[in-house]
Computed example of a mutant assay.
Amino acid sequence: MSKPEREFHLPSGPWEVPAGSAPGIRERTIAADADGSHRTAIVRWAPGTDTSSSGVAVHDFWEEVYLLDGGLRDLTLGETFAKGCYASRPPGMPHGPWRSEEGVTMLVFTYPRSPDH
C-alpha cells in the first residue's frame, strides 16, 4: 500500500495518545497508508516523560526515528541523544526505556518487516 500523494502542506490532524504509551507522550500522524502499516508521525514527549514502567520496547515492525528538538536518555545504554540524532530499528531490536528531562520532538517512520526478512 502507498501513502497518499501530498505536496507541501501543514499537517493538521489531531494530537493523540498512542496506545499503551507512558504519560506525556502525544503523536500526530502526518501520513499513513490505508491500513496504517506504513506511517509517518511527529511524536512529542513532555518534559519529564519516563517510559521506565513499560520496560524495554520490542516490536515486529521497522522504526526510524530522527530527533527534531530536545533530547532523551536511553536508560539501558546510559546514553543521552539530542537534536539531530537518528535511529534505525529493525523488527525485534530491543530499545529503551527512555527518560526525557527537557522533552523531545521526533519524526518517526514505521513500516512492516519485508516478507523475506
Rank of each mutant, 00 (worst) to 15 (best):
V65I: 15
V56W: 02
Y111F: 15
V58Y: 04
K3I: 12
D69V: 05
R39Q: 11
A87P: 04
T40F: 14
K83I: 00
R99G: 01
P18R: 01
A87Q: 12
D116F: 09
E79A: 13
L67N: 08
V43T: 13
P90G: 09
P11W: 01
H95E: 00
E64G: 11
P112R: 10
H59C: 01
E16V: 15
S37P: 08
P112A: 05
T80C: 10
L72H: 14
I25T: 00
T49G: 06
G71V: 02
G48R: 04
T76H: 07
G55S: 01
S114A: 14
E5T: 12
S2D: 09
G78T: 02
Y86P: 10
G70V: 05
L10S: 04
G55A: 02
F8N: 07
I30D: 05
A32T: 03
I42W: 11
E5K: 10
R28S: 05
G92S: 03
P91T: 01
H38A: 05
A22F: 01
H95L: 08
S52I: 03
L107T: 02
M1D: 15
A19R: 01
S114E: 08
G92M: 09
T76K: 09
R44M: 09
A57H: 12
E27Q: 15
P18M: 00
C85Y: 07
T80M: 11
E5G: 10
A46F: 00
R73W: 01
S12C: 08
S52E: 08
F8V: 03
L107D: 00
V104E: 04
L77V: 03
V58Q: 06
